[in-house]
Design a protein around this nucleic acid. Structure first.
Lengths: 207, 207
DNA sequence: CCTATACGGTAATATCTAGTTCCGGATCTT
DNA sequence: AAGATCCGGAACTAGATATTACCGTATAGG
């Protein structure tokens, strides 16, 4: 018995894997995913875009589903700014500030990734969880904070269903892009806030 | 010159194609589409489910994309009841009646088909149009009628953005199923009507 | 009855792609 | 310096599937 310890920290021989490249590869995977969808995406495309060899990818992820899962999960950490949403003093101000923030661009990519994996999500619970945590929850969490502050401030009633209010704008945006295939511009977003969200929160549009 | 007429109605020889089977085949295609999505669907699956030969399918549709396009387009005519939405006398009554009607089951299937083709829709404008006409528009049209009646009745203000109001419940439903993967039950639907749609239309929830 | 076509079913063809393996060269540990 | 491992890239393997080609049978028109 030479090295019986299972927790044995053996320094591996030879050149070490360059984990610096992991994020680049995952990012390339997300690009391809957003452009072509899960089934349209090939490992070759991802390798080519990341300027890496296919072998390099398979050394790090055992299969295409694992790569996609990891890529989706890694979007979670991208938007740090959502963890501290704007605090303008009014609910409307906060909501408007959120739609103007630079997170919009990242949101568009998230939506495309989501579109690319929806049909897969129905058959892979793990991917479903990853997608929810990385694509849905961050924005919902930011919304939640804003609404709760408005509630503590007394601006909106304590009866309000915050969870439902949080989902209105994501739902309207996704519907407009996916189903209606119309652009999501600032006017549309302001319209949602003034004509749907605020009334649903018990505030008159003019307030 | 024997038959120079271009509109020449020549009775084709031999056994005639049995077009009775077209709807059955398209219906089988929709089932497979709803279950496995566009990429998961194979021509063999459709032929097997329709108890038809693959050659029979290719005699009628030149390719898989054409078959899917036709199948999606043919969902349009299915829900005749949506063309005459309920008329209970109040906006709330009409909206509640619509979510209780038997169209709900057909809607569920439509949603699954939508999930199966969303990623394809992004790359095929023709399919996008077919999906919109068959899956989105019928319900929007029914909603439109209900809201316009309420407006003529004076129940809601003439300032209301009917197009936006029409899209609220479809957007919330699609978001809940596609993104959140939660069930769409009656309570959820009623909640949308009472807490979002009616307030957005300028009616208090208790009204 | 005869011909041409459709039918359901099976086999063949051609392409695509996930996953593996090999190569020459680079990099790290000993 | 030597051995092990990684790198990007290319070639290879194996399985799946869209599409075509047949087969024996059924049916409509002449």
């Amino acid at each position: 018995m030479t090295q019986a310890d299972p927790a044995d920290t053996k320094p591996p021989l030879g050149r070490r894997r360059d984990h610096t490249r992991d994020p680049e590869i995952l990012d390339a995977a997300l690009d391809v995913l957003a452009e072509t969808g899960y089934d349209g995406m090939t490992i070759d495309m991802v390798a080519a875009r990341a300027k890496a060899g296919k072998a390099t990818l398979y050394r790090r992820w055992s299969s295409k589903p694992e790569l996609v899962l990891d890529a989706v999960a890694c979007m979670k950490s991208k938007d740090i700014d959502l963890s501290s949403p704007p605090d303008t003093g009014t609910l409307r101000g906060d909501l408007v500030a959120m739609v103007t923030s630079p997170t919009i661009q990242e949101s568009e990519r998230k939506l495309k990734v989501m579109v690319g994996i929806v049909s897969m999500i129905a058959r892979d619970p793990e991917l479903a969880v990853a997608a929810r945590e990385a694509l849905i929850e961050p924005r919902a969490a930011a919304n939640r904070i804003v609404f709760r502050r408005a509630m503590e401030r007394g601006e909106i009633s304590a009866d309000c269903d915050v969870e439902m209010l949080c989902t209105i704008s994501p739902a309207m945006i996704a519907h407009r892009v996916l189903m209606l295939r119309q652009p999501v511009d600032r006017d549309f977003m302001i319209g949602i806030i003034d004509r749907i969200v605020l009334p649903a929160a018990g505030l008159s549009p003019a307030a």
